[in-house]
């Protein structure tokens, strides 16, 4: 069976894009106090799977971020610092 007949993990999908990931994160979300975060929604709806739930703890990594802005609008604004990557970094699309 070809790998194409099974669902890809999000990492395998993201790996198909062109990336120039900044060494500094462009999104910061404090994870020590997770009160008020829509944890399940972030984990399921971030198209890049940047948010992962382990038990009821959320972990975040900015590397595969596709800069859609979803987490910015469903997280209280004092709980997230959200900017676009600078210097043309981040994802580059060709066929979308």
């Amino acid at each position: 069976m070809s790998t194409l007949e099974k669902p890809f993990k999000i990492e395998d999908l993201l790996q198909r894009n062109i990336w120039d990931v900044d060494e500094e994160p462009h999104i910061e979300i404090p994870l020590d106090d997770q009160e008020g975060l829509k944890k399940k929604a972030l984990a399921l709806l971030c198209p890049a799977g940047c948010y992962t739930l382990i038990g009821d703890r959320l972990i975040f990594s900015y590397e595969g971020c596709v800069e859609c802005g979803l987490c910015r609008i469903i997280t209280p604004s004092d709980k997230i610092r959200w900017t676009y990557p600078r210097s043309g970094k981040g994802v580059t699309y060709r066929y979308t």
Binding site: L4, I18, D20
Partner: peptide
């Protein structure tokens, strides 16, 4: 941009087409 170079799952060869430089 080696982050953008990947293997073709069917042929096992490197896909360089459309890969930009940095």
């Amino acid at each position: 941009n080696t982050q953008a170079v990947r293997f073709d799952p069917k042929t096992g060869t490197l896909i360089r087409q459309g890969v930009p430089a940095i």
